[in-house]
């Protein structure tokens, strides 16, 4: 692995430090240090138009040590995890995984200004941590009330049809039996992650 070699030397370059932090958090096989800036990812990404930087640009910014701009970027939040970039990257960079890491880091440092996406993730997880299963109605209702009040009227017919066709229930899912165990697992995982 390329990372190991470079850690032999004392690295002062802030870009390299930031890069290695991202790599360490993603897992060493993400190969972000091997990016040749070819732009295959940016050319492939279905969300690129809505991103403030293309994925490739973001990787260049990481190398340049532009920590704040990177964590403030909406790019990772626009990523739909389609993995198109990952399968096409000529250097086998695990781009989608890097996007997840950047989201983790942005959430942890409260750097990303728009809360829509992080809120959705949080709400989703709250359901999972309560029931062990996700709860689409509760989630959507919660999320829409908070972020898309104006969108509700156009959404209403859809919601009603979903209910009518039995594809959406108003009652939350049954809690899984092993909820306690799951809670302990998640608590332990969080503790481990905080420690590392």
């Amino acid at each position: 692995m390329v990372l190991a070699e470079s850690t032999n030397h004392a690295i002062a370059d802030p870009g390299r430090v930031f890069l290695e932090e991202v790599i360490a958090r993603t897992g060493p096989s993400c190969r972000l240090d091997m990016c040749i800036q070819c732009g295959t990812c940016g050319g492939s990404c279905p969300s690129a138009d809505d991103m403030d930087h293309t994925p490739r640009t973001l990787f260049a910014m990481i190398r340049a040590g532009m920590r704040e701009q990177v964590l403030r970027s909406n790019t990772p939040w626009m990523c739909v995890s389609c993995y198109l970039c990952t399968v096409r990257c000529p250097q086998d960079v695990r781009i989608t995984d890097v996007m997840y890491t950047l989201k983790n880091m942005a959430v942890a440092s409260h750097a990303y200004p728009d809360s829509t996406a992080p809120d959705f993730s949080r709400a989703f997880i709250r359901n999972v941590e309560t029931f062990g299963r996700s709860f689409e109605v509760g989630l959507t209702a919660q999320h829409y009330l908070r972020h898309y009040l104006t969108r509700l009227p156009s959404m209403a017919p859809m919601g009603i049809s979903m209910l009518r066709s039995g594809r959406m229930g108003l009652t939350p899912p049954r809690r899984i039996r092993g909820m306690r165990g799951l809670k302990r697992i998640l608590a332990r995982a969080k503790a481990l992650e905080a420690a590392s």
Binding site: Q37, C38, G39, T40, C41, G42, G43, S44, C45, A48, D49, H53, T54, R56, T57
Partner: peptide, 12 residues
């Protein structure tokens, strides 16, 4: 042709 113009930082 789908490409990122990497010098402009934009998908084209």
């Amino acid at each position: 042709i789908h490409v990122e113009d990497t010098l402009a930082g934009r998908q084209r």
